[in-house]
Structures are given as structure tokens and as C-alpha cells.
């Protein structure tokens, strides 16, 4: 049976955490753990999700969970996996929840949020962060968002996917699929951060849908060497409406938005040619 709100495990494994109200990252972590179940062993590097989840004695993970060093998610996951197998334990799911620079499940909020909104390599073009300010001459981030999904897929791993917290049924299906595949799996889930993006706390889910609907993000999978698109918007919604409602993009000029729209169209040309 397809996994949905009614069939999902009712136990909460990420509860009482100190994420900002309306945090998209915490929604991604919460849902993924409900799909993986109590035998998940979670590894969380330095970043918002570890900062808000472990404030001793407030420990918000209901399953086994551990903090890793910033760049150490993958090596710690490997160690967890090897250690449990050495003890003869096979009924577990080792999962990493890295920010926009890690393995397994990447909750992408498009900046280093936990340290105060600095640019990461997944910050999109034009976005204002504290390290890419918007002023008279420079209008936010000059570099385009790195395509981590396809970079990871290029390693030829068994499974990679993109997702968004605006489309949780799709995300849950992908986590469930990854759960049953052996080897390295990667899911890149877009998870808006109201604090860093400058939207209201009740807009997180809406904007996570809108970024897919306007074509600036897409839902896809990589499996057996092939890319599949999971959702094709019939008609893209307005890119400028998506950008203008976020204060991190407020300074953008019409030309900037034109550049963003053009790069979206180029991306979709590529998708149409190369994805099933």
C-alpha cells in the first residue's frame, strides 16, 4: 500500500525540538524518521537539526541519534553500519541528515542557517545572505545553485532523488524506496527556512510547493543509471511571484528575474532531453 498520512507510523521520533516555528528542515526529518521507523539510527552533523534536537537534557530524537562533525556524516554512517553488522544486528536503517553539504538525506534550506544565514554552494543565484549581501553593486549571491543531485548521481550509486516538503507523499515514497535498497542512497529534499528566506512561518509548505510549480526545483529520481521526472507542471507558475514573496530576493531587478527564468528554461530543456 502506498504510504500516506493514514498509513504512516503514528509514533513521533522528532518531538519537542527547538527549531523555529514553521521550520521545513524539521518537517523533513520528522517525516523521514516516521517512514524509517524506530530502528533508524540517525547521524546529524553540526547544523540546525542537530542544534535544535540535542539540548541536554532535552533530547528530541526518539530513536538512536548522534551528532557528527560537520564534514563527518558519511564516515560516521559507515561506522554505525559496520559496528552494528559486527554485532550481528541487521534490522536497522542508518540515516544521515546533513544540511546543504552531506550524505543520505540532505535537507536543503539553501544556506548555512545554524550559524546565521551564510551562503552555501546550494544558495541560489540572487539570494541575499549575510555573506552575499544585497547592495548597490552586488545583488545577493552571484553564483548559481550547485546541482548536487546530479553530482551525486554521477557516482553511479543505486538510488538518488530530489524531493520537497511541499510534496510529502512523493518524499515519503522516496524514503520508503531508499529504505529497501542496499548501498548508498541519497535524497535531496528542499526544506524552506522561514527565518533565512524571509517568509511567514505558515508559508513554508506553500512555498515548498510553489518552487516546484514554478520550475525552479523539480521532483526526480536516479535509478539503474537513468533519470526519471516524477512531476511535470503543465504550465509553470510565475517565477517572480515565487521570488518576490521572500525577503531574501526582495532586491532583485526585473533583469535578475529574467536571468533566473532563462536558466530555469535551460534546465528544463536538459530535463526534457535526458530524463524519462
Amino acid at each position: 500500500m502506498a504510504i500516506n498520512a493514514k498509513t504512516l507510523n503514528e509514533t513521533e521520533f522528532f518531538y519537542g525540538h527547538k527549531a523555529c516555528a514553521g521550520c521545513g528542515g524539521s518537517l523533513a526529518v520528522r517525516i523521514a524518521l516516521k517512514v524509517l521507523g524506530e530502528n533508524a539510527v540517525a547521524v546529524l552533523p553540526a547544523g540546525c537539526m542537530s542544534a535544535v534536537g540535542f539540548n541536554f537534557p532535552q533530547l528530541c530524537f526518539g530513536n538512536n541519534a548522534i551528532i557528527s562533525t560537520f564534514a563527518g556524516t558519511a564516515s560516521m554512517l559507515t561506522g554505525v553500519e559496520a559496528g552494528l553488522r559486527a554485532q550481528g544486528i541487521t534490522d536497522f536503517h542508518a540515516v544521515g541528515f546533513a544540511g546543504d553539504g552531506g550524505t543520505a538525506i540532505c535537507y536543503d534550506n539553501e544556506a548555512y542557517m545554524n550559524t546565521g544565514i551564510q551562503k552555501s554552494s546550494l544558495t541560489p543565484f540572487g539570494a541575499r545572505t549575510t555573506t552575499t549581501p544585497a547592495g548597490k553593486n552586488i545583488r545577493g549571491n552571484l553564483r548559481p545553485k550547485k546541482n548536487l543531485f546530479e553530482i551525486v548521481a554521477a557516482h553511479g550509486i543505486p538510488y538518488a532523488a530530489t524531493a520537497s516538503v511541499g510534496y510529502l507523499n512523493d518524499f515519503m515514497r522516496k524514503v520508503e524506496k531508499a529504505k529497501n535498497i542496499r548501498g548508498t542512497k541519497y535524497i535531496h529534499v528542499l526544506a524552506p527556512c522561514p527565518t533565512g528566506w524571509g517568509v511567514k512561518t505558515d508559508e513554508t509548505v506553500e512555498i515548498a510547493k510553489e518552487v516546484v510549480d514554478c520550475g525552479l526545483w523539480y521532483l526526480a529520481e536516479y535509478e539503474n543509471g537513468e533519470f526519471t521526472l516524477n512531476r511535470r507542471p503543465k504550465e509553470f507558475s510565475d517565477v517572480s511571484a515565487y521570488l518576490r514573496r521572500q525577503s531574501r530576493f526582495k532586491h532583485l531587478t526585473d533583469e535578475d528575474i529574467e536571468i533566473i527564468t532563462r536558466s530555469r528554461d535551460e534546465k528544463w530543456e536538459f530535463i526534457n532531453q535526458n530524463f524519462k
Binding site: 521520533f13 518531538y15 519537542g16 527547538k18 516555528a21 541536554f56 537534557p57 532535552q58 533530547l59 528530541c60 530524537f61 526518539g62 530513536n63 538512536n64 541519534a65
Partner: peptide
């Protein structure tokens, strides 16, 4: 405080209601 770095999972001691 435990000597090892492990503690009971899901141990909650503060509410979040005051944020609302």
C-alpha cells in the same frame, strides 16, 4: 549527568508552548 555521551532517547524536560 551521564559519564558516557549517551542518554535516554526522547527525554523531554521543557515545553515549547511559550513560543506561541
Amino acid at each position: 549527568i551521564p559519564k558516557a555521551t549517551a542518554y535516554e532517547a526522547g527525554y523531554l524536560v521543557t515545553k515549547n508552548a511559550g513560543w506561541r
